[in-house]
């Protein structure tokens, strides 16, 4: 493990915090699989032999993607505000209840971006029974998300300056999400490959997560997520990920792919969204 930490530090100037080590093996399983190595241990053994530049680079890339950011890729948040949330609300108007699950939330930028999007652009939801559940496999990440404290470097990326001053307060060199926004998020520790306690989620954000799993792992995670979704719930994955799973239909909202379990009521609700690739 020290070897991997040194590699991350030397090759990518990336500091892995104590408590994040678990993430490494999780992330590197995909790299090992891609390079036809049996395990993360085999990957480390190969790296130690040297002369494995491509493998070393892929390893570092996998490690550095631990980075997340506020409003990552931006357009999924536009899709949320303009179509996905309004469509879900139209279907839930009787119950006035909506549950959003940010799976693998890392240090929390995603769930807080969702919360800020709702406050700014879909404020009616604040009068509903709204749950935003953020989970991560790492206890350190769970704690960080719950605290909602971000460094200057973290708020410098992706977060509109107007939202920075409106929704975060400065404490020395760090910024903390204000209590009214923190209070919108429930944070839990969850391993995505294990059975999920969540059920009835209307929307699951599983962005930039599946890429770290091999085919079998992907299937397991998708099984868990599908069970957590309401029958007509929606799933969003990362912009660079495409879900090839015959259990799901997809729609394109702007530049964002939204998936729904096949044969459910979700598809008509996104009528008007194109099936064509952008």
């Amino acid at each position: 493990m020290n070897f991997l930490l040194a590699l991350a530090r030397d090759r990518a100037a990336l500091a892995i915090e104590p408590g994040q080590e678990y993430l490494l093996s999780c992330r590197l399983a995909g790299v090992a699989n891609q390079h036809k190595l049996a395990s993360v241990e085999a990957l480390v053994a190969r790296l130690r032999m040297g002369r494995a530049d491509a493998l070393a680079q892929d390893t570092v890339d996998a490690l550095t993607t631990n980075e997340t950011s506020f409003f990552r890729d931006i357009h999924p948040y536009d899709a949320l505000a303009t179509q996905i949330l309004p469509d879900l609300m139209a279907r839930r108007r009787a119950a006035r209840q909506l549950t959003i699950w940010c799976a693998a939330c890392s240090s929390g930028q995603e769930p807080y971006s969702v919360a800020m999007t709702i406050r700014e652009r879909v404020p009616e939801l604040l009068t509903w029974r709204l749950r935003i559940i953020a989970t991560d496999v790492s206890q350190a990440m769970v704690d960080r998300t719950r605290a909602g404290v971000f460094t200057q470097a973290e708020v410098n990326r992706g977060l509109p300056a107007r939202m920075l001053t409106k929704y975060l307060s400065q404490q020395g060199t760090e910024w903390q999400v204000r209590p009214e926004v923190r209070g919108m998020i429930e944070v839990q520790r969850t391993n995505l490959v294990e059975p999920q306690p969540m059920t009835g989620c209307d929307l699951v954000l599983l962005r930039n997560v599946l890429i770290y799993f091999d085919a079998a792992g992907k299937r397991r995670v998708l099984d868990r997520v599908t069970r957590a979704l309401a029958p007509d719930g929606l799933l969003m994955v990362g912009v660079s990920e495409t879900l090839f799973d015959d259990r799901y239909d997809f729609r394109v909202v702007g530049r964002t792919y939204v998936y729904s379990p096949k044969g459910t009521a979700a598809a008509p609700a996104l009528r008007g969204a194109s099936q064509e690739k952008p």
């Binding site: 300056a161 107007r162 307060s169």
Partner: peptide, 10 residues
């Protein structure tokens, strides 16, 4: 990097 400065600039 002060919050007040960001507000001032905006």
């Amino acid at each position: 990097a002060e919050s007040e400065r960001v507000v001032q600039a905006l």
